[in-house]
Write a protein that binds this DNA or RNA. Structure first.
Ligand SMILES: [Mn+2]
Ligand SMILES: [Mn+2]
Ligand SMILES: [Zn+2]
Ligand SMILES: [Zn+2]
Lengths: 146, 146
DNA sequence: CTTGCACCTTAGAACCATTCCAATTTGTTG
DNA sequence: CAACAAATTGGAATGGTTCTAAGGTGCAAG
């Protein structure tokens, strides 16, 4: 069984769990996100998806992306007021936005750090999510994560 | 000497340092931000500023806000793709966005926590800023910070 | 089957925060 | 004062996203 099939199955499963249908558009959008994890914008996803599905519309790409976010298969990430970017990395992680190249890097967050971060909240604050965004320059050749 | 005069002086000083002029518009915009620290949007600042300066334009409010951010007297804060909000709190702090009320709360960040957060970055990553945003519900009556 | 109906996709219009533009006003300097 | 630069203004333009209305798709009940 190919990994594309596994992904597709996982997707169908999640969609079904939410009472939604698996469609070619949703599958291809999800595949595109898994294949190149460089935090593409909706426009970039649109361009990539058209290779496999030339008649898809931008509206549908937005719809599919929102569906994937709703199903918790993808995270939406924003930097300032730039276009929303999409990330299939479901592990807790921060983002490093390289001001020089415009590239976005995933930064793994150990559970104990998340705990410490949450501990700065006074009693009564009940966070449902935390987001950590670094901005700066990533010098030289550093590891993975598009 | 009133505190408004002190603020105005601090502002003039910073502007002069950047080779910029102190203007009534810039002063009133800055005063509005200092007076009610609830992270207003440009539109909200516009509405408040019109009380003291009825003929000011929205474009000027945007210009003034950008100037204040450039001079490091004010921070611009973004939540998702909502309108940019403005914050005169210059201490290192995170933001808690209350999903119920829409209100934004400042959360002080101890220096040692910032250090720990920065320490998750692999070598080669050179951050110029970090931003921490909590999202959730703030239950009951909790301290200050609009 | 086949009809009903909800779900999906689509193109294009609408939206809205922000930026840009050209014209005017203001302030500083010689 | 005159000249010039900086700042303000109203309105147009921008651009990512959402909305709308119309058609397509596919499971489900009869
Ligand atoms: Mn960016
Ligand atoms: Mn908000
Ligand atoms: Zn990511
Ligand atoms: Zn703040």
């Amino acid at each position: 069984m190919s990994s594309a099939t596994l992904n597709t199955d996982a997707l169908s499963q999640r969609l079904a769990d939410s009472g939604l249908r698996s469609t070619p558009q949703r599958e291809v959008v999800y595949d595109v996100l898994l294949k190149k994890r460089d935090h593409p914008t909706a426009d970039e996803v649109f361009a990539r998806v058209k290779n496999g599905l030339p008649t898809i519309s931008l509206a549908t790409v937005y719809n599919c992306l929102e569906t994937l976010v709703q199903c918790n298969l993808v995270r939406a990430v924003n930097f300032e007021r730039g276009p929303t970017r999409y990330c299939p990395n479901l592990l807790p992680h921060a983002h490093f936005h390289d001001e020089k190249t415009g590239k976005t890097h995933d930064i793994d967050l150990p559970a104990d750090l998340l705990e410490k971060v949450n501990s700065v909240l006074p009693p009564g604050y009940n966070p449902s999510s935390v987001e950590i965004i670094f901005r700066g320059k990533a010098t030289g050749e550093v590891a993975s994560s598009g």
